[in-house]
């Protein structure tokens, strides 16, 4: 039984660009996530700090979820543009 994809895929000339962009954005998100885990491990009381009327924990937690959504849109936008430009 072969290993190829279930449907035939054309050559994707934007693949390299998308990979590089993905790695860079992954590093950015990972750093933000690691800081969140780090604060909770090293100085959890800091998460009680009030920011914008809420605890830092709530702001940071919602921020991580919102950031994921925004970064996903940005990533998809640039990838789609690259595909349109490079796969003509």
């Amino acid at each position: 039984m072969g290993h190829g994809p279930a449907v035939k895929l054309g050559k994707d000339y934007a693949s390299s660009y998308k990979t590089t962009l993905g790695i860079r954005m992954f590093i950015v998100y990972t750093i933000v996530y690691a800081i969140f885990v780090g604060i909770n491990s090293v100085n959890p009381a800091m998460m009680e700090t009030i920011v914008l009327g809420q605890t830092l924990a709530v702001v940071y937690g919602f921020g991580l979820i919102f950031l994921a959504f925004v970064m996903a849109i940005v990533y998809n936008h640039f990838c789609t543009a690259a595909e349109a430009r490079m796969n003509k």
């Binding site: 072969g2 290993h3 190829g4 994809p5 279930a6 895929l9 994707d12 693949s15 998308k18 990979t19 993905g22 790695i23 954005m25 992954f26 998100y29 990972t30 996530y33 991580l64 979820i65 994921a68 970064m71 996903a72 990533y75």
Partner: peptide, 21 residues
């Protein structure tokens, strides 16, 4: 949810490109 960023940025497209079932 953070785990999905690993899926989006690193895994989604290569998995589609390389796998079958």
């Amino acid at each position: 949810l953070a785990g999905w960023m690993v899926a989006l940025f690193l895994v989604a497209e290569p998995m589609k490109r390389l796998g079958k079932y």
